[in-house]
Design a protein around this nucleic acid. Structure first.
Lengths: 193, 193
DNA sequence: TTATTTCCTTGACATACATCAATAGTTTTC
DNA sequence: GAAAACTATTGATGTATGTCAAGGAAATAA
């Protein structure tokens, strides 16, 4: 159950065997079937979720009813509505599973205890946050400077396996374009090469 | 010189008088004339800058030569190329002053020392990072779901003084639209009301 | 002060992308 | 195994925004 988590920790920080054991106590495992939610817009986000297996997404719904995907989270990724989690305000994101998934949930209280007892996690979570910020800034600049086709290629190059796991219309949503446009882009790319 | 900085610290964390004195030693003051750079794309970002007075911006230049403003930083704000600062990789952002400015610079080494000697700054910088991430996510979703006019209104509502300090074409760049489009939007808004 | 750069506006035109609607293939559900 | 839901494609058409070009106002520099 904790394989992927510890593997990820090892990439960034050194934990003793003791610390790993302690660590386990902070998380609650949770299984999710495809299409189940762990967070709905308006509720307070009680957990940060680590994906051991499967895949989730976070998204908002605008006033016209269109979904806008903020993030996909595959194995080894974290997902939550940070703002809601930290402030206790209602969440703006929905989070649901796109495949049957296994999660490790970290509550606010557990997180605090974890940071208190193993301070090197401060560093770990700061690195996560930084990487997330950098990636989001890149997407924003890309939205402002690249065409839909260029952004689609960036997505595929950055994550070549994504088309096998995410339906096309969700990639479109992630990119901020309509499914029809993405379909046409792919058609055009196919004839070009 | 440190008034604004300590005022900002006070909003988020409690510092003793001693700690404040110690704190001062980590920063180097720097004055900048309008249009001077503290970072150019390709160089390594050596500092995180806190703005005591004035205003800076960070921006990238795309392959067509267009500028895309990532951030404005007024008094009390921080600005840098985080990624470059942390990894030592060449910066992707340019950062320059838009008004004569007074900065407090924090080097990598000073930051580490500061975090080591006054660990509560871990928390402080995490909060900054989180707020930055949340704001950037909002902008991204907004780019994907709102029209240029709506985004302009969001900007003005969120920061009503901005038109007095930032030329219109830079607001356009921040919003990801052309100066011509912003000009037309404003004209249209004026006739509507 | 004049000269020069920066900034904003406006018009004519081009284009990337959205919208709406129909169809059909696929997968899921009962 | 039939019905229902979901997914991708394609065409016709609409629209927000970009591009290019010009002129003038305002700020800055010399």
């Amino acid at each position: 159950m904790f394989e992927v988590l510890f593997q990820k920790f090892d990439e960034k920080i050194q934990l003793t065997e003791e610390e790993k054991q302690l660590c386990k106590s902070f998380f609650s495992p949770k299984k999710l079937r495809k299409r189940q939610y762990i967070l709905q817009e308006g509720d307070v986000c009680k957990y940060v979720a680590f994906v051991e297996k499967g895949m989730l997404r976070s998204y908002t719904v605008d006033d016209k009813g269109n979904e806008h995907i903020m993030q996909f989270a595959f194995e080894g990724w974290w997902i939550s509505d940070h703002y809601s989690f930290l402030t206790g305000e209602p969440a703006v994101y929905n989070i649901d599973a796109q495949e049957d998934s296994e999660l490790l949930l970290l509550s606010r209280q557990s997180e605090e205890e974890m940071l208190r007892k193993i301070p090197k996690f401060e560093r770990y979570f700061r690195i996560l946050l930084q990487n997330n910020l950098i990636a989001t800034q890149r997407r924003l600049i890309s939205s402002h400077s690249h065409t839909a086709e260029e952004r689609y290629n960036e997505l595929i190059n950055g994550c070549p396996t994504i088309p096998q796991r995410v339906p096309q219309h969700m990639m479109a949503s992630f990119l901020g374009i309509t499914p029809e446009t993405l379909s046409r882009i792919r058609k055009q790319m196919a004839t070009k090469s």
